[in-house]
Computed example of a mutant assay.
Amino acid sequence: MNKKVAAAVSHHEREVAELRADRELAVEYLKAAMESLDDPDDRAAALLALRTVAEAYGGLGAVAAEAGISRESLYRTLSAKGNPTLKTLLAVLKAVGMKLSVEPGQHVAA
């Protein structure tokens, strides 16, 4: 009764592979996650999404080196409790070939 079991791939590994294979998907994935930065209770989602994109585009060590920060600092910054500076955020985005942009939001009349 020796059945061969196919090697399981974790959700995270699959997500990283899909983002690596489809640049447009990675951009849309990160754009959607970045919307959570507006919510102090849900900021972790954006940071973890950026971490996943960093893993897909070179790995955290390579992205940290390109961004000019230590790998350990990048791990802390892109964690659920991370709080990156604007300088770090821009450097990491640049290292993965993206940039920060602004779009109009809902206008609240005064």
Score class of each variant (00 low, 15 high):
K3V: 06
K4M: 12
A7T: 15
A8V: 10
V9D: 04
H11F: 12
H11T: 10
H12P: 01
E13I: 02
R14C: 00
E15L: 11
E18K: 07
A21H: 06
D22G: 06
D22S: 11
E24W: 12
E24N: 13
A26C: 11
V27F: 00
Y29I: 03
Y29V: 06
A33S: 13
P40E: 08
R43M: 13
A45T: 12
A45P: 00
L47S: 00
L48N: 12
L50S: 05
R51T: 00
A54F: 10
E55N: 06
A56E: 08
Y57S: 02
Y57E: 13
G58F: 10
L60D: 01
L60F: 01
G61N: 05
A67G: 08
E72F: 01
S73L: 14
L74K: 01
L78S: 04
L78K: 01
T88K: 06
T88E: 05
T88L: 06
L89D: 04
V92G: 01
L93Y: 07
L93D: 08
A95E: 11
V96K: 05
V96I: 14
V96M: 07
V96R: 06
G97P: 05
M98H: 09
M98F: 09
G105L: 05
Q106D: 13
H107Y: 14
A110E: 12
